[in-house]
C-alpha cells in the first residue's frame, strides 16, 4: 500500500491577453486521458493568479499555451514569483507559437520543455512523465 505513487497534478492555462484556448484545452484533455489531474484555469490569467493557484493546488507542473508573443516576459515573471514563494520546484512547460531562437532562452531561465505545434500527444505525455518521475526520486 505504501508504494502507491502520488497522483500527478498539473495546471494548464493561458496568461496574458490572448484568448485562443483550443491548444490549452487540447493539452488538458490529453493529460486527463493520460491519468493526470488537470487544474484548468481558463484564459487571460495574470502571472500572480497562476502562481497562487499552482501553490494552493499543489501542482507538480505549470503548462502555459502562449500564442501572443509575450512568452519571454510571462515565463520569466512566473519563474520569479515561484522562486519568491519558495515553490521553485514546480516545473514550467509551454506550447504555442514560440520561435526556435526563443526556446533556448526559455530553457535558460528554467522552462523545462516547449512543445511546438505538431508535437504528438504521446511525446508530450512521455516527456512530462519523464520529468515527474525524476522529481519524485529526488530527495
Amino acid at each position: 500500500m505504501s508504494d502507491r505513487p502520488p497522483q500527478i497534478r498539473v495546471l494548464i492555462g493561458k496568461a496574458g491577453l490572448d484568448g485562443h484556448d483550443r491548444g490549452a484545452k487540447y493539452i488538458a484533455h490529453i493529460l486527463r486521458d493520460a491519468g493526470f489531474e488537470v487544474i484548468y484555469t481558463g484564459i487571460r490569467r495574470s502571472p500572480e493568479e497562476i502562481v497562487t493557484t499552482a501553490i494552493q493546488e499543489d501542482v507538480r507542473g505549470i503548462g502555459l499555451s502562449i500564442l501572443s508573443g509575450a512568452h519571454l516576459f510571462l515565463f520569466q515573471r512566473i519563474r520569479e514569483l515561484l522562486e519568491q514563494q519558495g515553490a521553485g520546484d514546480i516545473l514550467l512547460f509551454g506550447g504555442g507559437t514560440i520561435p526556435s531562437a526563443d526556446i533556448a532562452k526559455l530553457k535558460d531561465f528554467g522552462v523545462s520543455a516547449i512543445f511546438t505545434p505538431g508535437t504528438s500527444a504521446e511525446t508530450i505525455v512521455q516527456t512530462l512523465r519523464g520529468f515527474f518521475d525524476q522529481t519524485s526520486k529526488a530527495p
Binding site: L31, R32, A34, V38, T41, G42
Partner: peptide, 20 residues
C-alpha cells in the same frame, strides 16, 4: 475519469476573481 483516473478540475474558473 472512471477509465483513466485522470480529471479536469474546472470549478475554479468560476472563482478566478478571487485567485489573487
Amino acid at each position: 475519469s472512471p477509465t483513466t483516473g485522470g480529471a479536469i478540475l474546472g470549478d475554479r474558473i468560476r472563482m478566478m476573481r478571487h485567485a489573487s
